[in-house]
Nucleic acid binder design. Structure first.
Lengths: 290, 290
DNA sequence: CCAAGATTGTCCAGACCTTGTTGAAGGTTT
DNA sequence: AAACCTTCAACAAGGTCTGGACAATCTTGG
């Protein structure tokens, strides 16, 4: 149990505001000590952080409070809370089960308000999508539910990618997936992170045949190419694409990302599994090279 | 719920005008906060946007208002907005050839500023995408270029879909593609148009197997199901999905859209090839039925 | 074609609402 | 005693309310 001051530092909301939110919107009703001191528990803190995140991303306070209360009443825990800790990846599974569109939007708002884009992707979104995938494999979730969430998340990432804007004059990269490969989510997140470190990213999407990769590289002369390897089934097509690119453009530097990057082998650099880290490392190496 | 200022920025209509339209023509009657502040919901915003579009294309305000009100009350489609000159569909082919990202963004901005969403889709975007496809078939364009443009356009549509918002309480629809079907562009545009006529749209994306369609319908009991048939290859999977749905949920009404809707046959309603017209016709029939 | 009248977007003033924050007066904890 | 907490009142900014007013524009009758 935490006192007001403690709660204020943990949530980042000033004490007075904490009390005002309680009085005006009833977003929490903390226990009281024998002497009348507020005592916040973890749940209260979670709600306050959630409210703070929503308000921070533009929701009006009463709206944010209603949202937080409504969701809490239904037992869906908000994703993120404390400074260091991003939330439980399972929340996505729960909104997915309910096909709760507005709830999903709120959760994404909260999550992205909570921390940097890169941290949210690495620390929460990708694990949560993993969890979603295994919920589907376990039969806890229909594929339609998984689809619904993926589609919404991908739309959100698309917005982020567009918002990250163009960087003319910076080293150029071509980013996408090999023929047959369609799980764009991770590679789109990575493309966004690359834009955010100031690179000029050409995103070609999924399912691009090897000879098209060759054409694209011939035409744009990128400083580097990034291929996603989201599933084990993608490995052969990725190898094929790499072979074609190495034959036609031996000078271009190849990089692999995604869950099955290690299974590919060969010369390409492996980017690892941290979107943020990989993006800045790649930017550094390209800037050094140029 | 949005305050006046928010509503003004979202609809592009100045606050004072918003109030005047309410006072003079009663085009909306927003809820009020306890303190008397106007609170606009999604439906109000849609009506205001519609009115703004009509006024912008030359209608007198009272006419526009009665039109908007009548459509909302009876589910009747708004008349076609003025024949504003939409651009040459070939421009897309040209930016595609150059992989000109910023240029493409600019073209899309311009197009969507030109007229209503529906008109831009029907009168420009879909023809332009057709043109793009045939440029690729003729070898005038690499598949990578086609990909690049499709991916960008789809992101733009995703943003529009999210911006169209939720309509709680309205008839619900499930919209998506059958197993193996992956050309989401048209169906996503249609889903957006459906939201814009005030329906509660659950968009499930592409590549959804027949039994998942059945599950989704069982869970959400939509008033109608919309399946896209973008290519001739999709026909068998669409038939399979229809058969499964008719077996499990004979009461739900099925609708087909997309370029190859005619090839499917059977009982489902054909939506035709105009996004705007089909959306309001569908809204009309659902509202009559309920 | 012009003048009278209606319409429409915009603006204004003074009152009221919303919300984060501050302060005073006093109780609690250690 | 020092540090912390309580409530309640009040405040400053920023936003919004109403109702009227006004210039520009459109419509209408002559």
């Amino acid at each position: 149990m935490y006192t007001v001051k403690h709660a204020a530092t943990l949530t980042g909301v000033p004490e007075a505001t904490l009390r005002a939110w309680e009085r005006r919107y009833g977003v929490v009703t903390p226990e009281r000590s024998p002497g009348g001191y507020r005592l916040y528990d973890e749940g209260a803190l979670r709600r306050l952080s959630a409210m703070n995140a929503l308000v921070g991303s533009g929701w009006s306070p009463p709206q944010a409070a209603t949202q937080v209360i409504r969701r809490d009443a239904r037992g869906v825990a908000p994703p993120a809370v404390f400074p260091a800790e991003l939330g439980d990846p399972n929340v996505l599974v729960q909104v997915a089960a309910d096909f709760d569109g507005p709830g999903l939007e709120a959760i994404l708002d909260e999550a992205f308000a909570m921390s940097s884009f890169e941290r949210v992707i690495d620390g929460w979104l990708m694990p949560a999508m993993q969890e979603l995938g295994s919920a589907w494999r376990d039969g806890r979730l229909s594929i339609a539910a998984e689809h619904f969430v993926s589609a919404t998340v991908q739309r959100r990432l698309a917005v982020a990618f567009d918002a990250a804007g163009h960087a003319a004059g910076a080293p150029r990269l071509v980013v996408g997936l090999a023929r047959g490969s369609r799980h764009e989510l991770g590679v789109l997140a990575f493309a966004t992170a690359l834009r955010r470190v100031g690179l000029d990213v050409l995103y070609v999407g999924g399912d691009l045949p090897a000879d098209s990769w060759v054409d694209t590289v011939a035409r744009h002369r990128p400083a580097a190419v990034v291929l996603g390897v989201p599933t084990a089934e993608d490995v052969p097509a990725v190898r094929e694409t790499i072979a074609a690119l190495e034959a036609a453009h031996p000078e271009v530097s190849l990089h692999l990302g995604g869950g099955h990057q290690d299974a590919v082998g060969g010369r390409p650099t492996l980017l690892g599994h941290s979107v943020g880290g990989a993006a800045s490392a790649l930017a550094d190496s390209l800037r050094l090279a140029s």
